[in-house]
Computed example of a mutant assay.
Amino acid sequence: MNLRSLLTHPVLWVGLVLCGLTALWLALGAPVGLITQIAIYTLYGMGVNLLVGYTGLASCCRRCSPWRLASCWAR
């Protein structure tokens, strides 16, 4: 790996941003437990988003939307 590809790697930038936000959070005097919970729930939400997107569950649920059911009941 050369230096250019290392500096443009998205995982490096995500890590740097998270470390910077944590340092800012600590400088404000906020508890570390809260930022940990925020990070955990954010990662959980991203994982669920990827899982739903790749398995196609979102396209399945469009058929069951309340607006579509309401229009079917109105007929």
Rank of each mutant, 00 (worst) to 15 (best):
N2K: 05
L3P: 00
L3T: 05
R4T: 11
S5E: 12
S5A: 10
S5G: 09
L6N: 03
L6Q: 06
T8D: 11
T8Y: 06
H9C: 02
H9R: 09
V11S: 08
V11L: 10
L12K: 14
W13V: 00
V14K: 03
G15I: 01
G15C: 05
L16C: 06
L16Q: 04
L16P: 00
V17I: 09
V17S: 02
L18H: 05
L18K: 08
C19M: 15
C19A: 15
G20S: 05
G20F: 08
G20A: 10
G20Y: 04
L21K: 00
L21D: 05
T22M: 02
T22H: 02
T22G: 01
T22Q: 02
A23D: 01
A23T: 05
A23Q: 01
W25S: 10
L26I: 09
A27K: 13
A27V: 08
A27M: 11
G29R: 10
G29E: 07
A30V: 06
A30R: 15
P31N: 13
P31I: 04
P31T: 11
P31H: 11
G33A: 12
G33N: 07
G33H: 03
L34T: 13
L34F: 02
Q37T: 09
Q37D: 12
Q37I: 02
I38D: 10
I38P: 04
I38S: 11
T42I: 09
T42G: 13
T42H: 12
L43C: 06
L43H: 01
Y44P: 00
M46P: 00
M46F: 09
M46I: 12
V48T: 05
V48M: 08
N49V: 08
N49H: 06
N49E: 10
N49S: 09
L50R: 06
L51V: 12
L51Q: 10
L51W: 13
L51R: 15
G53N: 07
G53P: 02
G53D: 04
Y54R: 12
T55M: 06
T55Y: 05
T55S: 11
G56P: 08
G56F: 08
G56C: 09
G56I: 07
L57T: 14
S59P: 00
S59I: 15
C60T: 14
R63Y: 15
R63I: 06
C64K: 03
C64T: 02
C64S: 06
S65A: 15
S65G: 15
W67H: 14
R68W: 14
R68C: 05
R68A: 14
R68H: 14
R68N: 08
R68F: 12
A70R: 10
A70G: 05
A70S: 11
A70L: 13
A70Y: 11
S71A: 13
S71H: 15
S71I: 14
C72H: 09
W73Q: 08
R75H: 03
R75N: 06
